[in-house]
């Protein structure tokens, strides 16, 4: 008790909140991790009775599951690449050019995230049927990009805005053409924001299930889509193993992104100017 008396009342409340937060945040993750390595685990036990890697070998040996993993990563990479190509110029335009209805356009990127996803996807599916995009790779890429446009425009746009116009002017003054200025000055300075946006895009594409399910099934089954059937058809351990595999790239990428950028980049991305 002496310990709590020395830290003070406010600190104790902070500590309690931290504990609650940790339980909520790490509890499920810990449970998932335990479950993935459990052989036999019944309710009152805190830890599994028998540890096992059976479901790991099952998941990693099932060809269709492995194929779905590769497909997921492949799609995520393509989506990130295409979003970069589309959105970086757009983001630069939003940051630098004062055109009419600029803010309205910028807000319009929020629209796809403002409606219930499934309703939107059904509407899109109707369009895709007419254009023969159902059950195609192009269709999946398109539906993923609809989701990533917002990150990919907002965050880099804020990053570009943080590059002062006069820093670009200094480079012009030093003898660089506008293209060189963009390549050597603006783009490298906005890089942290662009990396964050790319990571977001990659992850959201990797985890996208509903749209892919609607447009891609049965030919294109990505990890999150297969996840549904695994949860339905196999014991929860298999689902846990699969979840861990699905979570790993997220963790790795976020840790990697943290090395490049501070929290302010994330915050800046959602500031409206």
């Amino acid at each position: 008790m002496w310990y709590f008396r020395t830290v003070g009342k406010r600190k104790i409340i902070e500590f309690i909140f931290l504990c609650i937060f940790m339980v909520f945040f790490f509890g499920p993750l810990l449970n998932l991790l335990l479950l993935a390595f459990a052989g036999e685990w019944q309710y009152p036990d805190i830890l599994p009775k028998v540890w096992s890697l059976d479901w790991w070998s099952f998941v990693l040996q099932d060809e269709s599951l492995v194929r779905s993993m590769w497909l997921s990563f492949f799609i995520a990479a393509i989506v990130t690449l295409i979003s970069l190509i589309i959105c970086i110029p757009a983001a630069y335009a939003f940051a630098r050019i004062q055109f009419p209805l600029r803010r309205l356009f910028l807000f319009s990127f929020l629209l796809t995230n403002a409606f219930p996803k499934m309703g939107l996807y059904v509407a899109i599916a109707v369009l895709f049927y007419q254009m023969n995009l159902m059950n195609t790779f192009t269709g999946i890429i398109l539906i993923h990009i609809i989701n990533t446009l917002m990150f990919m425009t907002w965050i880099p746009s804020a990053a570009f805005e943080n590059v002062h116009k006069s820093q670009e002017e200094a480079a012009r003054d030093a003898g660089a053409s506008p293209m060189r200025v963009f390549w050597h000055i603006t783009l490298p300075m906005a890089k942290p924001g662009i990396i964050v946006a790319s990571v977001f895009t990659f992850l959201s594409s990797l985890n996208e299930a509903e749209g892919t399910f609607l447009v891609g099934v049965p030919n294109y089954q990505t990890m999150p889509v297969i996840m549904y059937s695994i949860i339905a058809d196999y014991p929860s351990t298999a689902g846990a193993v699969f979840s861990v595999i699905l979570t790993l790239p997220t963790l790795i990428l976020l840790l990697a992104a943290r090395r490049f950028v501070g929290a302010d980049v994330f915050a800046n991305g959602f500031k409206m100017k």
């Binding site: 006069s166 002017e169 200094a170 660089a176």
Partner: peptide, 16 residues
């Protein structure tokens, strides 16, 4: 600007 025979020093330094 890149072709002019002048050089500018800015108020806010503007180093990269």
């Amino acid at each position: 600007p890149e072709k002019r025979p002048s050089a500018m020093v800015f108020q806010s330094y503007n180093l990269w």
